[in-house]
Write a protein that binds this DNA or RNA. Structure first.
Lengths: 245, 245
DNA sequence: GACTATTCTGACGCCGCGACAACAATTGAC
DNA sequence: GTCAATTGTTGTCGCGGCGTCAGAATAGTC
């Protein structure tokens, strides 16, 4: 079963070809804009063939989301292994999030689809698990950093707050701000010019609030983030390009 | 034009009747589950009549969202006028958010619809503005508290962080955590048992991180939140029931 | 080259949105 | 009270999209 026939390889290739065609449609025209007829037409295959690869439209979306989350996971992984205090690694994750939302904006948009009622539910358990797993792995990377910080005695977790629960806060603030800045009708008119830098400040404040050493002022924090960005971005680009041939 | 004919009143009444019927369908079966035929059937009116009230399905959703956001706005308003230090008022808003997500869970779910691509865009500018306005009013209430804290010298804003930008952080963490805890596949399995209390801790940490006086430890913060809840919940229930006859 | 298994095809059934022409009710003028 | 004119209501129709399936085509096997 290791050896695949030419035909089987062809089919496997086509699966990713479908996704390659579907992604930009979904990004620009939304779920309703992605019609199976249109997709089949652009693929120059019959609709039935598409249905041999994905049992419905929702499955295609979930497959695309899985691809995007895979990129995020890689970015996180790379951020998690840099040298230095745990707090710096935590900030590196922040930089990774910034990179992801800015330079993989489409992927970030894709990730949102999965939270839509009626897309998740109509997909197969197999694909759901793939995504759940990826999310858990991301979580594990961040929680690992927190636990390491505790071990290194750079951080004391408050009574009644597990490592994962601390992560949850960061996840929430990053996720929340990114969704809001992408979908809120009128952020600029509210006086928020540059959401990314605002979030940097909030994350720094939160870390300071937990007395996570080394405690930093905003100038220092920003400086370190810039240094991390310079160091990590080349790696990030490689990852991004690896996943987008 | 102030005086409405009986017929006109009847029609106006029917508009809210449509929304009353549509909400539970949308909540339980999603946007795709809400069909105009079904809605018309349950209303015991012809489909065309529904279209006299709303020019398309998306408009119905936006109208429902506006209703829900109105409740949120009222809750915020009530939280913003309590006596005491600004920080307490800020915490009262947190309590309001908790109440909203817990006891107006459907409304919270409704609010998410508006961020969906293809729903916002297909609605009339008039309804869009209604929602934008409500969002801005909520924002204004919170920003007002921040500004008051600065005036009272209970808080010093960091260089390069406007009041609205501080608000944005809180908005993000609250919004983010609530969305995540409602839609993330497997939060409990990740070790987050009670998202609400976790968020209380993070908000408290954030406020402490900004040195917003009176600085509080988690025990005190929790105690104050409980006291606020006890004080505000009766008012909140009134608001909720007022909007749901 | 014949025969089987697998893959591909596109027409079809069904459903839902939104339009619209025909029809009913209400209003206002006299 | 009668009769337009206006306003409101109806439900059928066209269009387009999803997912299916019987049959055509192709690949694989001996």
């Amino acid at each position: 079963m290791v050896e695949l026939t030419r035909k089987q390889r062809e089919i496997e290739l086509r699966t990713s070809e479908i996704l390659r065609i579907a992604r930009p449609i979904l990004i620009s025209d939304g779920f309703r804009g992605l019609s199976m007829d249109r997709l089949a037409f652009q693929m120059e295959y019959a609709k039935g063939t598409i249905y041999n690869h994905f049992k419905n439209k929702e499955e295609i979306v979930l497959a695309l989301v899985a691809e995007s989350m895979e990129i995020r996971r890689s970015l996180f992984e790379q951020s998690g292994i840099i040298q230095g205090p745990a707090r710096l690694r935590m900030m590196a994750l922040g930089v990774a999030c910034e990179f992801y939302t800015q330079h993989c904006a489409d992927d970030f948009a894709m990730e949102q689809w999965v939270r839509q009622q009626g897309i998740w539910d109509k997909s197969s358990e197999k694909r759901q698990n793939l995504i759940r797993q990826c999310e858990e792995q991301c979580m594990a990377i961040v929680a690992g950093i927190v636990r390491d910080a505790v071990l290194r005695q750079e951080l004391v977790l408050p009574e009644s707050l597990g490592a994962e629960e601390l992560v949850f806060g960061f996840w929430a603030i990053n996720y929340g701000s990114q969704v809001l800045s992408h979908t809120s009708p009128s952020l600029p008119s509210l006086g928020i010019s540059n959401p990314a830098s605002v979030i940097r400040i909030h994350c720094c404040t939160l870390l300071n609030g937990f007395h996570w050493n080394p405690v930093m002022d905003y100038a220092r924090s920003n400086q370190e983030s810039e240094a991390l960005a310079e160091k990590l971005f080349p790696v990030f680009w490689t990852i991004k390009n690896r996943n987008r041939a």
